[in-house]
Design a protein around this nucleic acid. Structure first.
Length: 271
DNA sequence: CAGCGCCCCTGCCCGC
DNA sequence: TGCGGGCAGGGGCGCT
């Protein structure tokens, strides 16, 4: 479900409700997520004030005085603020209870998500230490992507989806950005021209920024931190449109499988 | 090291 | 209607 815009939407949606509130209780109904939820999570945070909610890649970072709680939504997770009286449902695995009608609730049917705790300096955490730049920050530019891609033989789509290269570009937006930039997803990263990299960086930034503005892409059941669906889905030009006409040239869009992921492109507009 | 495929898991959709 | 197979937005990890 969530790509970077969905995680950012969640971050913005929950922050006003939970920041500066004190954790009253932690309820773990299902500890078996991507990694086990730490057994001592409650004792780490109960009684502590949540100082801030940020995002690094697709990891949500909840900052406390003594450390950070990392939350990843995996493929099917969502994190919402609910009233305490709202009974937990199926797949509601973890509650962070702030009292006063305010519970942060993780729901994740596939359980690819994670809830972790680290008291070491945040950026030293192994899951964050080797991440590439944020796609919407200035550090991510054509120079950077061009230099890093030289001599790389893997497909450009897999390259931009590698979180060590740049974080937060998931399958949907990789498909969309490559289409907008006129680059064939299967092309070896090292053969993409400098000019094409300029377009690609620009399109990645644009597609992510637009999706964030609109509250993310709702596929199936995504809802942001406030429970509202996103509206970006209606603007997808290639993802899920295989066989349908390219909006540019009207030729049917082709679908191939790249690294076990659905890859859709126009054989005429993308070279 | 780079690159590729395999999983973790549930739900849903499709074809038989 | 029931069931098996394939696929789904992520991404760490192990193998070659």
């Amino acid at each position: 479900m969530p790509e970077l815009p969905e995680v950012e939407t969640t971050c913005r949606g929950i922050a006003p409700h939970v920041v500066n509130k004190i954790v009253q209780a932690v309820v773990v109904r299902q500890p078996q997520l991507r990694w086990p939820v730490p057994a001592n999570l409650a004792e780490q945070v109960v009684g502590q004030k949540l100082l801030g909610v940020t995002r690094r890649g697709k990891y949500l970072v909840l900052r406390f005085a003594t450390g950070h709680m990392l939350v990843h939504l995996g493929m099917s997770g969502n994190l919402r603020v609910v009233a305490r009286r709202e009974d937990p449902g199926y797949h509601d695995h973890v509650d962070i209870d702030f009292g006063a009608q305010c519970v942060l609730r993780l729901n994740d049917p596939r359980r690819f998500g994670a809830v972790l705790w680290t008291s070491a300096p945040l950026l030293e955490h192994e899951l964050l230490a080797h991440l590439g730049p944020e796609p919407l920050e200035a550090l991510f530019d054509a120079d950077y992507l061009y230099q890093r891609s030289r001599k790389r033989k893997l497909a450009i789509k897999a390259f931009i989806m590698d979180s060590k290269v740049v974080v937060g570009v998931g399958n949907i937006y990789a498909n969309e950005a490559l289409h907008a930039a006129g680059i064939r997803p299967t092309r070896a990263a090292g053969t993409v021209s400098r000019a094409a990299m300029e377009r690609l960086v620009s399109e990645i930034k644009q597609v992510l920024a637009r999706a964030i503005e609109q509250g993310g892409t709702t596929l199936k059941d995504f809802v942001g931190g406030d429970g509202k669906p996103g509206y970006f889905q209606q603007q997808l030009l290639v993802y899920g449109r295989q066989g349908q006409p390219c909006r540019g040239c009207k030729k049917p869009l082709k679908e191939v499988r790249l690294g076990q992921r659905s890859t859709v492109y126009c054989t005429s507009c993308q070279r």
